[in-house]
Nucleic acid binder design. Structure first.
Lengths: 326, 326
DNA sequence: CCCTACTGTGAAAACGATTACATACATATG
DNA sequence: CATATGTATGTAATCGTTTTCACAGTAGGG
């Protein structure tokens, strides 16, 4: 492997000069030319490992996601990757498979291991998480949750759910049920449910607590919860779900119980999943700019790291949403 | 930052001893104990950057994918991540957004940048790709394509498509159309189409070349191609698609043209997408073990890197498939 | 003409681990 | 008893950069 010293010798300069040439320090035109040629001739490439050791920066960003194989997360990840690639960084991806403990592990791993910054696609944020984030040695940005004291890019789930609830209350006649997710997930669990309830209430059609079920983000859990609802309360006429994935399961359940094609008129979701949109013709749901949230969070992070002038710094950013098909 | 020397001093040994303790060399019981305590006391963690510089190994695996936000790819990635995490490696993810040139760029980047091995989720494999793979300095495994001379984990798309075609020929009465993808993608483009054609032919119902369209993996492209087909050849009674994603688009198109609910009986796909399965009740499709292919490819790669005994080495592995809903 | 200020340069000291080498003692082997 | 063999340890070299420092030359301001 050809190293800097070899290039320097070939060009008849010191390796310091080569380093300066590469990093933009003082270098005279003729030496620059000689170095350039020597590099081309030898096919020299910098050892990023030596560089990392010396500078302490790796140009690596740790990205922690709850579940890579989900539409929303993989879109966010695509957004993150876009910005990273464009700006000369690489992505170290950690998939926690929805195990909150593993998030902490990776947070820890990334501290010691070589990342310049961290993007955390957050779901459940415990006190332990907060502490880990607080004491993080590298800059960190959260996506999907609004956590006090941390830089966050998130959507206003409460507001969106409120609007959805309000809109549906006027449109649906009959009983409305709700399939949510754990309230430990502040945004998707707590906020969406509370917002939805408040929206229904504001429209004079409050949610019956007996018609609330809990899913686990999966299609199957949505299906199971809906089947159970339909058997316990056969007069339910509409099922609102906290995610489009669970909504797909609910559609399936209704199709099975009430006949094919019934489901798509009696379910709402969150996230505006493309498959769901195409196959149902569009159920009521909330469109979030997932890709955008990845882009924004990453831009903010890299601005901080690169010390971009006029930099906005790490702060919290609330993105908009859009009600669909109501 | 506390370094090895500090630990060594505190424990009253040389840093070589600490290194040996950490890496399992000769060390006496009492020194081991003292070192252990010193490490705990100081909260010392190895600098992976120094380690990488010295050893040349980074415990990083480069993963190149065509599009992270797609069901199949994100499942494969989940499988890769599982194995990596379990075996102490981390994933450097590169998303090429279906730009073949970017694959080469990343392949190059990963050569110089610090990865111990590469997993390439392949689509289009050009000669240039082949050359790059051939001359790759680190071990590399391909997923999804069977390329001569490279280690590959793939599915037999031809065979699967053949079976699907044969099965459908007997079930469908009327004209069958096909929406494929570029044949530059050997597996999803060439093999699926040829296999499907052969299957139909074997069943005595050959595919009309005029009823073949080309999509681009996206739902919208499937929709567009299907709409076009339906307007040009209104008597088409079934549309087979090269991917479930495009199939979803085709379902939508048929629903629009022929009435809601019609699509799900007149479309087949590839990949057994969960949404599609739930919302259509299950169209004919082929189930591939995407997660498994990620797991297998990565295990093979790491076995080679870690020099696991009884190691199978880098070789090519064909995984099975399963016809669904026919 | 002196003093700054800026440009250019190379030698050498980091960065923080791993490991080749030298050395030593203990035990086993013949 | 001489000779291997295995265990245990520290010293110092090494990985390939970046960067500090010291030193020069050159130009501009007064």
């Amino acid at each position: 492997m050809v190293k800097m010293k070899d290039v320097a010798e070939l060009a008849g300069v010191s390796s310091a000069a080569v380093s300066r040439y590469l990093n933009g320090g003082y270098i005279s035109a003729d030496k620059a030319e000689r170095i350039k040629q020597a590099i081309e001739l030898t096919g020299y490439v910098r050892s990023s490992q030596a560089r990392a050791l010396r500078t302490g920066s790796t140009k690596l960003i740790g990205v922690i996601v709850p579940k890579i194989n989900s539409e929303s997360v993989s879109r966010i990840t695509a957004g993150i990757g876009q910005v990273l690639g464009r700006r000369g960084y690489q992505m170290l991806l950690a998939n926690t498979d929805n195990v909150a403990k593993r998030e902490l592990e990776y947070l820890d791993l990334f501290q010691n291991h070589p990342v310049d910054g961290i993007v955390l696609v957050a779901t459940v944020v415990t006190d332990e998480h907060r502490r880990a984030i607080e004491s993080c040695r590298v800059p960190i940005v959260l996506i999907g949750q609004n956590v006090e004291g941390a830089a966050c890019v998130y959507h206003d789930d409460y507001e969106a759910a409120f609007e959805l609830g309000q809109a549906l209350a006027g449109r649906v006649d009959g009983k409305i049920a709700y399939i949510g997710v754990t309230e430990e997930d502040r945004a998707a669990g707590y906020d969406r449910r509370r917002g939805f309830e408040a929206g229904l209430r504001a429209a004079g059609n409050p949610l019956d607590a007996a018609l609330i079920r809990l899913g686990s983000f999966t299609l199957d859990s949505g299906y199971g919860a809906a089947r159970e609802l339909l058997s316990v309360a056969p007069d339910v006429s509409f099922i609102a779900c906290a995610t489009d994935t669970m909504a797909a399961g609910a559609v399936r359940a209704i199709d099975e119980v009430r006949g094919m094609g019934e489901g798509i008129h009696r379910v709402s979701g969150f996230g505006d999943n493309a498959f769901l949109r195409a196959l149902t013709g569009g159920i009521p749901t909330v469109h979030y700019g997932y890709l955008t949230s990845g882009v924004e969070a990453t831009s903010m992070l890299l601005d901080t790291l690169d010390g971009v002038e006029g930099e906005r710094g790490l702060k919290t950013l609330k993105l908009g949403h859009q009600l669909m098909n109501v």
